[in-house]
Design a protein around this nucleic acid. Structure first.
Lengths: 190, 190
DNA sequence: ATAATTATGTGATGATTATCACAGGTCTGA
DNA sequence: TCAGACCTGTGATAATCATCACATAATTAT
């Protein structure tokens, strides 16, 4: 829980009392590799804080897996649309490594929110960070070619390249794995 | 202001008192076509609620304009990263038609937030909607081809096609305008 | 340990797309 | 209203990418 408290206090002022109230909404779970945090068709009633390990979100379309996001330590992942509107999730979230995850229960969180305004502010800031990340990666596709997208990750998010395999990354970058392999080869030579 | 109040109340319960407190953070401005709401290099200290008209966000890279979002009536636009972290904006937001915009001032909004918890909740919900939209459009590029992205807009967001020119849309869809013209031709025939 | 699975590299080929060039249509402001 | 600015369509060509096929690591499970 120590990491989470530091994370929270990096976002907003948070009294010991707020922290105590928040506990009612939290549970910790260790997910095995390939275990699902969220399954397609379910309603997402949780925010998932990743204490260690990492996860990815992916769609499965006509049997083909399309990765849409990677989430590492000290990040929160969720299906923001499902969480906010109660609609069924169209994608999955899965642990890519054994991962210790702190789960925020939506309904208990909203109850805690009523008791401490700091928790409401925390919620706003978590969603803000999530929105920022979505915007950042969504923009990549409009601005850059596949090769430039790879270079962007190399510069701004090297941790992704270190931990995610080429095949997994290709799907995220929107190119075939063979293409990414060739892009990488061109780059290490030229 | 009537549209805005309806919009707010569609998101969260909002008392007349909260509405009155919120007024201190609001100003209304009519932007001419091509007038900038936010300029690259500026810090974004506002949320922009579009009462009528529409706007787009765009990057200008090596003299080439890349559209990253379109925003219509009853939507809020901003640079969420600049607004939240105080960093300089890397993109512009411009009125594509004469547009009546209600501007939420960040600092005054935060003051109002301290006086009414409903305003904090409103803020969280506005950011949530923004995040949902970012996720939706970011995902398009990972899941679909250019033609499928066009079909998605035709189905889910026909208002964009009705109001945005082909050239402007091509940039948003990440293809050359000639390519979008040909995709459209293929579709209307086949 | 070793068999099975998963990941990566690479060639060949066809499909898709970007880019340049140019023509005609539509909008718009002085 | 009329000239300049924008928008759309289309051909030609080169670049990029997806797909299939197969070989060879690397990893994983029993």
């Amino acid at each position: 829980m120590d990491n989470l408290l530091k994370y929270i206090r990096s976002l907003t002022s948070f009294s010991d009392k707020s922290w105590e109230l928040l506990q009612a909404a939290l549970t910790t779970k260790v997910f095995k590799k390939r275990e699902l945090l969220l399954k397609e068709g379910q309603v997402c009633n949780s925010l998932f804080y990743i204490d260690n390990g990492y996860c990815k979100s992916y769609y499965e379309i006509d049997g083909v897996i399309k990765n849409t996001g990677f989430f590492f330590e000290n990040e929160i992942t969720t299906n923001i649309n499902s969480f906010g509107n109660g609609q069924k999730s169209e994608f999955n979230i899965v642990a890519c490594e054994p991962s210790k995850v702190i789960i925020f229960d939506k309904h208990k969180l909203f109850q805690a929110t009523k008791q401490a305004n700091e928790i409401e502010t925390l919620g706003r800031n978590c969603i803000r960070l999530f929105a920022t990340k979505q915007e950042e990666f969504g923009t990549l596709f409009k601005l850059y070619t596949a090769q430039e997208r790879l270079e962007y990750l190399e510069t701004k998010h090297p941790e992704i390249l270190q931990r995610v395999s080429l095949s997994q990354l290709a799907s995220f970058l929107g190119v075939a794995r063979e293409t990414l392999s060739r892009i990488r080869k061109r780059r290490t030579l030229g």
